[in-house]
Structure formats: C-alpha cells, structure tokens
Amino acid sequence: KKKYVIKVYFEDTGKEVEIEAESKEEALEAAKRLAEELGLKIKKVEIYP
C-alpha cells in the first residue's frame, strides 16, 4: 500500500514537520489539526508519493 510523506512548513517559526499518511486528504487533515494545536499558520505543504 502506498504511503504519502507530507512536509509541512509553518510561518514565523521556520519549523517543518513530516507526516506520513495513507492519502493526501488524510495528510492534509493531519497538517491542519497540527497547525491548530500549535496555534501556527501553514506556510507551505509539500507532498511526496
């Protein structure tokens, strides 16, 4: 089964997080949740198959 690796870059902090997920949708949801939890804004998202 294919996994996606999503790199999320946050504004202000210069922080980046990698998330593995089964689908792009799932990964983007996780990225949004994470940003909310951390109180950060997402600057850029890169998706690698």
Rank of each mutant, 00 (worst) to 15 (best):
K7M: 11
Y9M: 13
V8M: 08
E25G: 04
E26F: 11
E22S: 08
I47H: 10
E29S: 09
E46P: 00
Y4P: 02
Y9D: 02
E37A: 05
K1Q: 12
Y9A: 04
E18Q: 14
S23H: 04
E29G: 07
Y9W: 15
K7H: 11
F10H: 00
D12A: 11
V5S: 05
S23M: 02
I42K: 00
S23W: 03
Y48A: 07
K44W: 09
E46S: 09
A21N: 02
E16W: 12
E22C: 13
V5N: 04
E46D: 13
I19D: 01
T13H: 09
Y9E: 13
D12T: 12
E18R: 07
E22H: 13
Y9I: 12
E11W: 13
E25C: 07
A30R: 15
K15L: 07
Y9S: 08
E18P: 02
K24D: 14
K32S: 11
E20L: 10
K43W: 08
Y48C: 10
E46L: 06
I42G: 00
A30G: 13
K41L: 12
G39T: 02
K3G: 08
I6V: 07
A21K: 10
V45Q: 03
E16I: 14
L40M: 09
A35Y: 02
D12L: 12
D12Y: 10
S23A: 04
E37C: 15
K41I: 10
Y9R: 05
V5W: 14
E20D: 10
K24W: 14
E26L: 11
A21M: 06
Y9G: 03
A27R: 00
V8G: 00
V5H: 11
E11S: 07
G14L: 08
R33H: 06
R33D: 05
E16S: 12
F10C: 01
K3V: 05
G14H: 06
K44C: 05
K32Q: 13
A21T: 13
V45I: 03
K15Q: 09
S23F: 07
A31I: 07
P49D: 14
K7V: 07
K3M: 11
L34M: 14
V8L: 09
I6P: 00
E36I: 13
V17P: 01
E11R: 06
A35L: 05
E16N: 12
V5K: 11
S23D: 09
A30K: 09
A35K: 02
A31T: 03
Y4R: 03
I6H: 01
E22D: 08
T13G: 15
I19N: 00
E46I: 12
A31R: 00
K44A: 11
A30F: 06
K44P: 00
V17H: 11
F10E: 00
K3D: 14
E25R: 04
A30D: 06
S23I: 03
T13I: 13
Y48Q: 10
I42H: 01
E20K: 03
S23L: 03
K44T: 08
E36D: 11
E22I: 04
A35C: 02
A21L: 05
L38Y: 08
K24C: 15
K44N: 12
S23E: 06
E20T: 14
K32P: 01
L28K: 07
F10T: 01
L28A: 10
G39N: 11
L38R: 03
E29I: 06
E37N: 07
P49G: 07
V45H: 04
E46T: 07
I6D: 00
I47L: 12
E29T: 15
E22Y: 05
V5D: 01
I6W: 06
Y9C: 02
L34W: 15
K3E: 08
S23K: 02
E20W: 09
K24H: 14
I6M: 10
K44Y: 12
K7T: 07
L38Q: 07
V17E: 09
L40W: 04
L34K: 11
D12M: 13
V5Q: 10
E25M: 07
A27Q: 00
V17C: 05
K3Y: 05
I42W: 01
I47W: 11
E20A: 10
L28P: 01
A30E: 13
R33T: 06
A35E: 04
E46N: 08
Y4E: 03
E26G: 14
K2C: 12
K32A: 12
K15D: 05
G14E: 09
K32F: 13
L38W: 04
Y9H: 11
E25N: 05
P49W: 04
E18F: 07
E18I: 15
I42Q: 01
D12K: 13
I47M: 15
K3Q: 12
K2W: 02
I6T: 03
G14C: 06
G14N: 11
A35S: 11
E29P: 02
L40Q: 08
E22N: 11
Y48W: 12
E46H: 13
K24M: 14
E11H: 09
E26Q: 07
A30W: 13
L40T: 10
Y4A: 03
I6Y: 15
A31V: 13
E29R: 11
T13W: 10
R33A: 03
V17I: 13
V8D: 00
E18W: 10
K32E: 10
A31S: 06
G39S: 04
A21R: 08
R33L: 05
E37M: 05
